[in-house]
Structures are given as C-alpha cells and as structure tokens.
Simulated scan of single mutants.
Amino acid sequence: MPRLGALAPEVSDWTEILATTEWQAGRSAARYNPRDLSLILRSITESFGSLRYPFAEVLGRQSQNWASELRNVSNENE
C-alpha cells in the first residue's frame, strides 16, 4: 500500500497534508498526531487536493465504505 509520503515526497510528515488542506479551506490547522485513528480514517475517506483520494487505487470500494462507517460511528460518539 502506498504511503502518503510516497505520493508527496516533499512532505516530511503525512499530517502536514491534512494541515495544508485545512489551511486552504480557511480553517485553522492544528498539530496533528499521526497515530490518531480519526485522522487515519480521514486520509482514507477524503480527497486531498491534487492527491485526490490517495488510497482509492489500492483499497476496494468496500474497504473505503468500512472506513467511512468507522468514521461515522466515531463522530457520533464524540
């Protein structure tokens, strides 16, 4: 499975991609923990600018749906 770092080698930490996406959307970006499950699920289920959906080619649609379900359940319990 490719890592976000392989898709964007100029980025030292994959969470920088999330922070940049937040900043570009006009939201404040915090320092993210790369082991935060909600961020990992987000990286699977969201489009990230020119990277688009970075895991779409390696994860089947069912796997992406499961990640979305897990993310929804997690958001409901916050």
Rank of each mutant, 00 (worst) to 15 (best):
V73P: 00
M1W: 05
T21D: 10
N72W: 05
Q24C: 05
Q24N: 09
R52Q: 12
Y53W: 08
W14K: 00
A25D: 11
L7F: 03
L39G: 10
R35L: 14
W66S: 03
S43I: 00
N65W: 07
S74A: 14
G60D: 15
F48V: 01
Q24K: 13
A29M: 07
A30I: 12
E16V: 03
L4F: 02
T21G: 01
G26I: 10
P34I: 08
F48T: 02
L41R: 05
S28F: 15
Q24P: 00
E78G: 14
M1A: 13
A67W: 09
R42H: 05
L4V: 06
R35W: 09
S43Y: 01
T20S: 06
S28I: 12
S43Q: 02
G60W: 09
S12C: 02
L4T: 01
R3F: 02
L18M: 11
S28Y: 15
S74M: 15
Y32I: 13
G26N: 10
P2Q: 05
A6C: 03
L4N: 00
S38A: 15
A56K: 13
S68F: 00
L7K: 11
R31I: 14
T15F: 01
G26M: 08
Y32L: 13
S68T: 00
L51C: 05
E46D: 12
I40R: 15
E16S: 04
M1Q: 06
D13K: 11
L37V: 15
T20Y: 02
L7H: 04
V11A: 00
P9H: 03
W14H: 01
M1P: 04
A25Q: 14
R31K: 11
L7D: 02
N77L: 15
F55E: 04
I17V: 11
R61E: 14
N65S: 11
N72T: 10
A19G: 09
S63K: 12
I40A: 11
E78Q: 14
F55R: 04
G49N: 04
N33Y: 11
R35G: 13
E69K: 10
